[in-house]
Design a protein around this nucleic acid. Structure first.
Ligand SMILES: [Mn+2]
Ligand SMILES: [Mn+2]
Ligand SMILES: [Mn+2]
Ligand SMILES: [Mn+2]
Lengths: 217, 217
DNA sequence: GTAAAATTTTAGATTAGTCTAAAAAATAAT
DNA sequence: ATTATTTTTTAGACTAATCTAAAATTTTAC
C-alpha cells in the first residue's frame, strides 16, 4: 500500500501532529524529513491521493483515521524491533534507533505478531515510549518535559527522546532511565539549567537535556 | 554501496553462476529476476561500473571476487534470518523465504553479528543450506539432486530448495528434511518418477520433487 | 557460407522521489 | 491598505529502475 518513503513521511506527520491532534505545515515537515518544501508538496499530494492525510493548499495536512492506524503500525514495528535489539540481542539503548528505522518497513503481519509474542507483549520500548498493540491501540499518559517542571516537583521518568545517540549515552551515565524517580531541586534563570535528583543522585543538566526527559506525576 | 535492487541482481547472478564458476547470460538472469532482457542489460552495466561483476557484451557476466563477497553477505543475512524465524519465532520452514527476502537487505553489520551469536552460530539454515561466516567463508560439499542418483544409492538429505512454499509443505509431509537418510529403490523410465526410502519410509515422488532434494553420499 | 532465427543491446518513454528556480498565495510591516 | 516578507506551490530537470519496440549481434539452419 505505502512505499517506504511514504511510510516515513506519514510517521513524521503523525508525530508532528501530536497523534493527529493538529495540522502539520509544509516547512515543518521539510525540516523533520531533512528535505525541501517542494519535495514535501509533491509527497503530500500522493499521501492525500491514498487518503491517509487530508490536504488543504497553503494550510497544511491532517492525518485521517486510516492514516493514523497506518502510522501507528509503523511505530509499533519500530518500537518492537528496538525492544528486540535491546532485550534479546544485547544492544545498548543508544544503538537501536537507526536499525529500527530500517526494520520498521519490513512488511509481514505474521512476523510482527510472532515478534510481539516472543518479546512477551512489551508495553513500552527501551526509551519508555508506549508500543501500540496489534489493533493500533496505544496508551498515552500525559508526559511533561523536565524543563517545564516547577521546583519541588517529584515524579518518575516516563520516557526519553530516542533519536540522539550521544544524548542517550549521557542520560545512561547520569542514570536517567524510564521508571527512575526524579525531583526538581533548582532552576538557573540565566541559562535555564537545572539541578535535579535522579534516583537520589544530585545532577545539574542543561536545557538541551531537560527538554528531552519526560516525566509523569 | 549497493541498492536493494542491485543486491537482488547480484545474488541471482551469484546463484546462476554456481558460486562464481561460470558466466551468466542476460536471458537467464531476466527469467530469474522475473524481468525483461532490456532491464537486465541496464542493470549489469551498473553492477559492472561498481566492479562487482565483469561484463562482456553479448557474452554474459562473471562475478568478481568483490562481488562474490558481497553476494555471500546477502546470502548470510538471508539464511541467518530464516534460522531466526524458525528457531526463535516458531515459523514453519515454508513460511520464511519471503520474509527473509526483505530482511536480507537490512544494513547493519553489528545486527548480523549479534544475531549470529544469538542463534549460536548455526552452520546451516532451516532448509539445509550452508550459512557463510562473517568473513564470507562457506563450506560447500558436493550435493547431488535425487533425480540424478542411481538405483541402490544410499545417503543423507543435505538440503532442499527453499523458495516454493507448497513444495516445502509436501516435503515436510513425507519427512524429507535435511539430515534424514535416504535410499533409491527404483526409477520409472516413462515419467522419471522414483521410488525412494526416506528414513525407512517408502514413498513415490515425481521428477518435479526429486530435482529439489539434494543429497550427500 | 549465406539466410533465418534467436539473443542481446540500444533508443525512447514512464514512474517515484528528489532538486533548483520561479510563480503564487498568505502573513507581516509600515 | 498597500508594500514587503515569508511560506508554499508549480515548472522543469535529474537519477534509478522499469518497459516496449527497433536495431545490432550471435547462433543455428540449410
Ligand atoms: Mn526509535
Ligand atoms: Mn523509517
Ligand atoms: Mn530462502
Ligand atoms: Mn532480496
Amino acid at each position: 500500500m505505502l512505499s517506504l518513503t511514504e511510510e516515513n513521511y506519514l510517521k513524521a506527520i503523525y508525530h508532528l501532529s501530536d497523534g493527529g491532534a493538529k495540522a502539520v505545515l509544509t516547512n515543518a515537515l521539510a525540516v523533520a524529513m531533512n528535505t525541501k518544501a517542494a519535495s514535501v508538496t509533491d509527497m503530500i499530494k500522493k499521501l492525500s491521493a491514498k487518503e491517509v492525510i487530508t490536504y488543504e493548499k497553503y494550510y497544511g495536512v491532517n492525518v485521517t483515521p486510516k492514516g493514523k492506524t497506518e502510522a501507528l503500525m509503523v511505530i509499533r514495528k519500530h518500537r518492537l524491533w528496538e525492544t528486540f535489539l535491546v532485550d534479546k540481542l544485547g544492544f545498548a539503548w543508544d544503538e537501536v534507533h537507526e536499525v529500527a528505522e530500517q526494520l520498521e518497513h519490513i512488511n509481514s503481519p505474521r512476523l510482527i505478531e510472532k515478534l510481539d509474542e516472543f518479546l512477551g507483549y512489551p508495553k513500552v520500548d527501551p526509551h519508555g515510549d508506549p508500543i501500540p498493540d496489534h489493533k493500533g491501540k496505544i496508551k498515552i499518559q500525559p508526559q511533561v518535559p523536565v524543563d517545564q517542571l516547577q521546583i519541588g516537583f517529584q515524579g518518575k521518568i516516563a520516557a526519553v527522546k530516542d533519536s540522539d545517540s550521544n544524548l542517550l549515552k549521557y542520560l545512561d551515565k547520569i542514570g536517567a532511565r524510564p521508571g527512575v524517580k526524579i525531583k526538581v531541586l533548582g532552576k538557573e534563570e540565566y541559562d535555564e539549567s537545572m539541578e535535579i535528583l535522579i534516583d537520589d543522585h544530585r545532577v545539574f543538566i542543561s536545557k538541551a537535556v531537560s527538554q528531552n526527559i519526560l516525566v509523569v506525576g
